[in-house]
Design a protein around this nucleic acid. Sequence first.
DNA 1: TTGAAAGCGCTAACAA
DNA 2: TTGTTAGCGCTTTCAA
Lengths: 328, 328
Amino acid sequence: MKKQTVKLEDVAAAAGVSKTTVSRVLNNRGYLSQTTIKKVHQAMAELHYRPNVIARQLYQQRTNLVGLVFPTVDNPFFAQLEAQLDRELYRRGYRVLMGNSQNNPQREEAYLRQLLNGQVDGLIVGAHNEGIEQYRDTTLPIVSIERWVSKDIPVVAADNYAGGTLATERLLAAGCQHIIHTNYPHDLPSPNLERRRAYEELMRKYHRPAVTYEVNFDSSVEEKLVIFNQLFDKHPEVDGIFADNDTNASLIMRVARERGRQIPRDLRVVGFDGANMTRTLLPELTTIQQPIDQMASTAVELLQKRITGKKTVGTVQLPVKLIAGTTA
Amino acid sequence: MKKQTVKLEDVAAAAGVSKTTVSRVLNNRGYLSQTTIKKVHQAMAELHYRPNVIARQLYQQRTNLVGLVFPTVDNPFFAQLEAQLDRELYRRGYRVLMGNSQNNPQREEAYLRQLLNGQVDGLIVGAHNEGIEQYRDTTLPIVSIERWVSKDIPVVAADNYAGGTLATERLLAAGCQHIIHTNYPHDLPSPNLERRRAYEELMRKYHRPAVTYEVNFDSSVEEKLVIFNQLFDKHPEVDGIFADNDTNASLIMRVARERGRQIPRDLRVVGFDGANMTRTLLPELTTIQQPIDQMASTAVELLQKRITGKKTVGTVQLPVKLIAGTTA
DNA sequence: TTGAAAGCGCTAACAA
DNA sequence: TTGTTAGCGCTTTCAA
């Protein structure tokens, strides 16, 4: 199991000093004469010395790594979120360990088993799986985004209820008579359910029928197209759609157009998320924008506090806003 | 620097056996009596024992981590690429350490300084920075995607030249007289330059003027919109655009429409990349599709070979294909 | 079938 | 200003 890398000891020997001295030079600590410093640097250069990060981590009991556990990164919302988390963590000296769960509880558990074992200094989670015990069983600093995990893990979330209200009100104000909402199956513990609740309560208030179409998060594009076609088959009267995310909004608009409907004349559509990438590729979409970058910064800030042992608030709710496009 | 976690030694004491025995139970190695196994398991459960990953990594001299060094993950191409890399690496027992360089050489160097120091078992790189010495100075297994790094690092790339040819031919065949191409400034060592070369050679062959508009990779959307407006100001005659990526294609179409042009009647547009996310949000775009998932699998396969000490080929070039939408 | 002891490469008391 | 020494928590050789 030995490996022949240049180690601190070799540098010490080459420079004619002790390991301690080399370590001191390396970390700029303690008293050192200029001569020694020069000698050591020279030896390091000659031997192409590279300090072993793992050995240092073992001693320090910290890795400067933060684990990110989310469903996937291939999605406008999560791509922007993870990119921003990475940026903020980098600023504070942390690197990121990716943990895409693919909505697979086994994968999420596998990541946690590893990550909780000293591999990371903290965790930011936002995957969709339920009932993962491991979170309860650890003292590792954890912060969650848009997901309730357990009572002592702080949650950063957008004001989904307000978002659902804004979206529904927009469609109502435009005169839509038959508004349909798409969302996950309601047994998933997603914050999206708040959007649904807002929609359904508002519809009830206006004495309209509330119709929520359930679409799995991880259905393929093809499957979703089938489902949305069924939606129009069953509800030809629909004239307003509040989609639970921008991707679904886009697919619904595609199906609607294929069926000869003009937007917004025959059908008004409001999406949800407003990630940069969607705004760029689909600027005409009216949508409820989550403050993704701010959610990321807030989460990192909370995590930092937890790591340094400070007390934190339990929940942070951030405001959403309506981006007025031309689809509703 | 001591920390009060339950360690192997504590389990050993609780179970009344030696550290060796606990380690054996943990790793399922060597001869063990059922009684001992049971005792140890019980002690582990009672003490909530979690083996320290870092200590194991130090001894094994491997981390089962692979570093991913790319410009960003917030982009349809890289999001899909990194997601697929993660998937393939996970299958083979590796976890991913993210290294988004943000097109910043300092950040790339900072990542490398760390990663090359025993933090990862291998590296997959595809950032755009030039002249990073560190790559040359290491024996760590590395594979590159779409970027030439140094002569002993294998490259996985799409056939960019063929892609450039396909795109340009498509526009020519449609009867475009004034075709403009967008690309990076030509001092960047990007594989995109092959797309440009194909375009310019084909134009020359057909005795048309080749006009390449240079746009920085990391310009903001706003900056790009300004540039593309200038493009139409300077070249009102343009009737065909071969954009070097789908995002730019989308922005160009937006600008064109704002200026009253109809697509494809007045202007034909071909993009490049064909990532899933773009295909979903912008299905009408005619584009050259890179085999992103296949590029990822191939890179992981090569890396695995390198890690296990097998010889590998120097370069793998994968085919692209034209996706016919309605924009060209 | 089990254990003692050495060591992975680094850092930091403590002593000189 | 520098060195000796004892770990960080784990795995494994070698001996019993």
